[in-house]
Design a protein around this nucleic acid. Structure first.
Length: 264
DNA sequence: AGTACCACCTGACGGC
DNA sequence: TGCCGTCAGGTGGTAC
């Protein structure tokens, strides 16, 4: 699930539970998830250390270490962190577990092993090296307009491209397009400025609200597309059935009646 | 530069 | 019940 709102929620969870506690030990269950760091080096770096603060850019979560540097977490398609006290509460598919001296634990659950754990000296440096675009949640209208103005291809493809805008994925990309009434295959540079403004407003509104409800589809407004995704479901505006559409290699959901703006 | 397609993994689900 | 194909909200590489 993890797109920007999910990762922001995870950040707040870690912020609220895992800071300023001495790390006793670290368990790395599957080394495939390590990105650019060996298991011994990661363990050595974390043991005896403490988490001091959190940060996020797009779908990457950063946790600052007391002795310098940052832990980098990426959640892939199925990942989430869990903080717990009793060993029995360890999540299924825990691939990376931090044991604090107070006896509590922070685990990274990754069912499909598509997430990543690494280290960086500096998040800004990491973002640069990774080639990530600006964070979608802090993109102002002018920057958004510039990005759309020089983009080729489809608007949905642009939303999915992390090097242009960071943080949107398949679900929230669809949601923003739905709320702005824009066709997934619209050509960004051809959109009228009032449509671009609508898209930008929808982007900000969707991300803020999704973070507010902890990215839980059941708590999202009934007028949203996200809780209605799926075969046989109707458009939340009651205008007909939702349809599938493949853009940039991803299967999305949309309403052909509501999303006519920029239709190619 | 974009896009299509495959790959990486595991698990859930529907059809037969 | 069991097997099998398909699909899943992530990214990355390759070929075009």
């Amino acid at each position: 699930m993890p797109e920007l709102p999910d990762v922001e929620h995870f950040r707040l969870v870690i912020q609220a539970t895992s800071l300023h506690k001495r790390i006793a030990s670290v368990s790395i269950r599957r080394k495939e998830i390590l990105d650019g760091v060996s298991a011994p080096r990661l363990k050595k770096t974390l043991q005896g250390n403490r988490f001091e603060e959190t940060g996020r850019h797009a779908k990457f979560l950063f946790v600052k270490l007391e002795r310098g540097g940052w832990l980098v977490l990426h959640f892939g398609m199925t990942g989430y962190p869990k903080y717990y006290r009793d060993e029995g509460d360890e999540p299924e598919h825990a691939r990376f577990v931090v044991d604090f001296k107070n006896g509590h634990h922070l685990a990274l659950s990754l069912q499909r092993l598509l997430g990543r754990v690494g280290l960086t000296e500096d998040p800004a440096e990491f973002v640069e090296a990774q080639g990530l675009g600006p964070d979608a949640a802090s993109l102002d209208l002018d920057a958004f307009r510039d990005i759309l103005g020089c983009a080729r291809g489809t608007i949905k493809g642009l939303f999915l491209n992390q090097s242009r805008i960071g943080g949107l994925g398949n679900v929230y990309g669809d949601e923003v397009l739905f709320q702005a009434g824009v066709h997934p295959k619209a050509t960004p540079r051809d959109l009228d400025d009032d449509v671009v403004r609508n898209l930008h407003r929808a982007l900000k509104r969707v991300l803020k609200k999704a973070v507010d409800v902890k990215a839980d589809p059941e708590k999202m407004p009934r007028t949203w597309l996200t809780p209605a995704r799926g075969a046989g479901n109707a458009c939340p505006r009651s205008c007909g059935p939702l349809e599938r559409i493949s853009v940039s290699g991803r299967n999305g959901w949309w309403c052909p009646r509501c999303q006519a703006r920029g239709k190619p």
